[in-house]
Deep mutational scan, measured.
Amino acid sequence: MTGIVKWFNADKGFGFITPDDGSKDVFVHFSAIQNDGYKSLDEGQKVSFTIESGAKGPAAGNVTSL
């Protein structure tokens, strides 16, 4: 699925993605970002991701920028 990064705190390594389908915002951890180098996201960035079952509920996985 796709969405827009609502916010991401690079110091803490997590944030939230707002899915394009209008569903509830999804937690994203830096370890789910699939790019080389520094793993961070920018507010407003368009991303593709999967929904994984995290310890505290749904979380984004396999996050790639579009």
Score class of each variant (00 low, 15 high):
Gly37Glu: 09
Glu43Lys: 15
Asp42His: 15
Ile33Val: 10
Gly44Ser: 04
Ser65Ile: 15
Ala55Gln: 13
Ile51Phe: 08
Ser53Met: 15
Gln45Cys: 07
Lys6Thr: 05
Thr18Gly: 05
Asn9Ile: 05
Ile4Gly: 03
Lys12Asp: 04
Ile51His: 05
Trp7Leu: 04
Thr50Glu: 09
Phe49Ala: 01
Ala60Met: 02
Gly22Lys: 07
Asp36Ser: 12
Phe16Tyr: 08
Asp25Glu: 10
Asn35His: 11
Phe14Arg: 02
Asp36Thr: 12
Asp11Cys: 15
Gly3Val: 01
Lys46Ile: 11
Val5Arg: 00
Gly54Trp: 10
Ser40His: 15
Gly15Tyr: 02
Val47His: 01
Gly22Asp: 05
Val5Lys: 00
Ala59Ser: 13
Phe30Ile: 12
Ser65Glu: 10
Thr2Asn: 06
Gly54Cys: 10
His29Ile: 04
Lys6Gly: 03
Leu66Ala: 09
Asn35Gln: 14
Lys12Asn: 06
Phe30Gly: 05
Ser31Pro: 03
Gln34Thr: 13
Ser31Gln: 07
Gly54Ser: 14
Asp20Pro: 03
Gly37Trp: 07
Gly15Lys: 00
Ser48Lys: 12
Met1Phe: 12
Lys24Ser: 12
Pro58Gly: 06
Lys39Cys: 11
Ile17Ser: 00
Asp11Gly: 12
His29Asn: 04
Lys56Glu: 07
Asp11Phe: 14
Asp25Arg: 04
Ser48Gln: 12
Ser53Lys: 13
Asp25Cys: 06
Glu52Tyr: 13
Phe27Lys: 02
Gly15Val: 02
Glu43Tyr: 13
Gly13Met: 04
Thr64Lys: 14
Gly22Met: 07
Val26Ile: 14
Lys46Thr: 08
Pro58Phe: 12
Ile51Met: 12
Tyr38Arg: 12
Ala10Gly: 11
Val47Cys: 04
Lys46Cys: 13
Thr2Asp: 04
Lys24His: 11
Asn62Cys: 10
Ser65Cys: 13
Asn62Arg: 10
Leu41Gln: 01
Ser65Thr: 14
Leu41Val: 05
Asp25Thr: 05
Gln34Ile: 14
Phe30Cys: 12
Gly37Gln: 10
Ser40Arg: 12
Ser53Arg: 09
Phe16Met: 08
Ser23Lys: 07
Gly37Tyr: 10
Gly15Cys: 01
Gly3Trp: 01
Asp25Ala: 07
Val47Ala: 02
Ala55Val: 13
Lys56Val: 08
Asp11Ala: 14
Asp20Cys: 15
Thr50Leu: 08
Gly22Gln: 07
Tyr38Met: 12
Asp21Arg: 05
Lys12Cys: 11
Lys12Trp: 13
Thr64Ala: 11
Ser48Asp: 04
Phe8Cys: 02
Val26Ala: 03
Val5Met: 03
Thr50Lys: 07
Lys56Thr: 09
Gln45Glu: 13
Gly61Gln: 14
Ser31Asp: 05
Ser23Gly: 14
Gln34Met: 14
Asp11Trp: 14
Ser48Cys: 12
Met1His: 12
Phe14Thr: 03
Thr2Ile: 10
Val28Lys: 00
Phe27Leu: 04
Lys6Trp: 03
Thr2Glu: 06
His29Pro: 03
Thr50Arg: 08
Val28Asp: 00
Gln34Glu: 10
Asp20His: 08
Leu41Glu: 01
Asp36Tyr: 11
Leu41Asp: 01
Lys6Ser: 06
Ala55Asp: 12
Ser53Tyr: 15
Ser40Pro: 06
Gly54His: 13
Gly3Cys: 01
Thr50Tyr: 09
Ser48Val: 11
Leu66Asn: 09
Lys24Tyr: 09
Ala32His: 07
Gly44Arg: 05
Ser31Ala: 06
Pro19Arg: 04
Val47Arg: 00
Phe30Ala: 11
Phe30Ser: 10
Gly13Asn: 03
Thr50Gln: 09
Asn35Thr: 14
Met1Cys: 11
Glu52Gly: 08
Leu41Asn: 01
Thr50Ile: 12
Ile17Thr: 00
Asn35Arg: 10
Ser23Arg: 08
Val5Gly: 00
Ala10Tyr: 13
Ala59Lys: 15
Lys56Met: 11
Ile51Arg: 09
Ala32Thr: 07
Lys56Arg: 13
Lys6Asn: 06
Ile17Arg: 00
Asp36Val: 11
Ala10Trp: 11
Phe14Ile: 08
Ser65Asn: 12
Gly22Val: 03
Thr2Cys: 08
Gln45Lys: 05
Glu43Cys: 15
Tyr38Ala: 12
Val63Gly: 01
Val5Asp: 01
Val28Pro: 01
Val26Pro: 00
Phe49Met: 04
Gly57Ile: 05
Lys12Phe: 10
Glu52Ile: 14
Gly61Lys: 15
Asn9Pro: 02
Lys56Gly: 11
Thr64Gln: 13
Asp20Ala: 08
Gly13Arg: 05
Ala10Asn: 11
Asp11Pro: 07
Asn62Trp: 11
Asp42Asn: 14
Lys46Phe: 09
Val47Ile: 05
